[in-house]
Every structure is written in C-alpha cells, then in structure tokens.
C-alpha cells in the first residue's frame, strides 16, 4: 500500500512503493534534518539560550522545533493558490494532497499560515516571535523553570516593544500575535498524533 507523508519537510508526499516503511522513515529523517539543525543554530543565537542547562535547551528544542518550523515555513503554504511547496521545490495542490488522504492537519496549517501572513510581520518581528515560541516555560520536563521563565519574559518584553514601535497605532497587533501561540500548540499536538499513527502503522 502507498505510504503518504505529506509534510513539506519531506521531499515528496508519496513514498516510492518499493521502499520499506523503515527506509521511508529514514529518507524522511534525512530530508528534515537540515531544517532541524537550522532551528538549533537559531536557538543558539537567542541571547541567554545557551546559558540554560543543556537538558533544558534540549527539552525546549524537542518540544518546540515543529512550531518553529511551522512559523518559518508558513510561506510554503500558498493560501491564495491553495498549494504546498515541498523542500524538493515541487508544488502540490491542496486538492491533490487531500486526494492522497491528507486532510484536517493541512487545512489547519493553511489557516495558521493565512492568519500569520495577515499580521504582516517584519523579518525582525518574526524572528523574535519565533524565539518566544521556542522559549516556552510551560513545556513538560523543564528542570530550571525559573531560568526559562526569566528568559521567556525578557523575550516577550522585547517583542512587545518591537511590535509597538513598528505599528504604534495598532495596539491589538501584539495580542493577536501572542494568540498565535495556542494555535501553534494545537497544531503541534495534531502533528504529533499524526506521526504517532504513522509509526504505529
């Protein structure tokens, strides 16, 4: 049977039929590894992140990588054209991906991308927002909660100042941006369930 991994971090949504599930999984792992490494590099450049304990750095990255990638690659979801571009550079219509059996999660990803795009964030705002997403003190397994909370607070403060400065007339913009965080958390959970079901299958 055909195995479909319609994640834009994959090279192609449909796996080669002659490959075993293990080989498909390994190919997928190879295709998203560079993006994960970039998230780690990004984290290292967040002031204060490297001062956290190594275990807390790993915990935050493990829990938040999907959310960071979702923000970073939101532009792969073309809302107007209803297409998704995979890292191979090939573009697929949402309809075609749905035809392969992908549905709910992709719809939610499109919705998120559209909402994020509507905020028209600058590159600087997007970077700082991504840092706030990554340094979330409520991830399970944090050892030194106080350090992570302090870093998160300082990042949120900096984001608030930046957003207010770039658009002083729109006080709700910062709130709208912070409200994207629970959306990302929901997407992360649904995505995890999807991965889990693939592994069980």
């Amino acid at each position: 049977k055909d195995i479909v991994l319609a994640c834009p971090m994959n090279m192609y949504p449909q796996a080669e039929p002659n490959k075993t599930p293990q080989e498909i999984w390994e190919d997928f792992s190879l295709s998203f590894t560079p993006a994960v490494r970039e998230v780690v590099e990004f984290a290292k450049h967040i002031p204060g992140f490297s001062a956290l304990s190594e275990n807390d750095q790993v915990t935050l990255l493990k829990a938040g990588t999907f959310e960071v990638l979702m923000v970073r690659f939101a532009s792969l979801f073309n809302v107007k054209e209803q297409t998704v571009t995979f890292i191979s550079g090939t573009t697929y219509s949402l309809e075609a991906l749905k035809g392969m059996g992908m549905g709910g999660l992709l719809d939610t990803m499109f919705e998120f991308s559209e909402k994020l795009k509507s905020l028209e964030l600058t590159a600087e705002e997007l970077g700082l927002f991504t840092a706030v997403v990554l340094v979330s003190a409520d991830r399970s397994g944090i050892e030194n909660l106080n350090s992570v909370e302090l870093l998160q607070e300082s990042l949120i403060k900096a984001l608030r100042a930046l957003v207010s400065k770039s658009n002083p007339c729109d006080a709700s913009r910062f709130t709208k941006l912070l409200l994207k965080m629970p959306d990302l958390r929901t997407l992360n959970n649904v995505h995890s369930e999807k991965l889990l079901s693939f592994r069980i299958d």
């Binding site: 792992s29 994960v36 493990k62």
Partner: peptide, 27 residues
Amino acid sequence: FSDPASNLGLEDIIRKALMGNLEERPE
C-alpha cells in the same frame, strides 16, 4: 511510541547540533 519527537530521532539531531557549538567554542 509515546514520544513522537524521540521516534523522529529529533533528540539525537538536536544534541549533536548543540554539541557542535561546544566543539567550536575556543579553549
């Protein structure tokens, strides 16, 4: 299979990428 992130090998990739930084750090 209770932890999708571990199943993806994510922790291994993350730890190696973080350690890369430590290796590059000057003595």
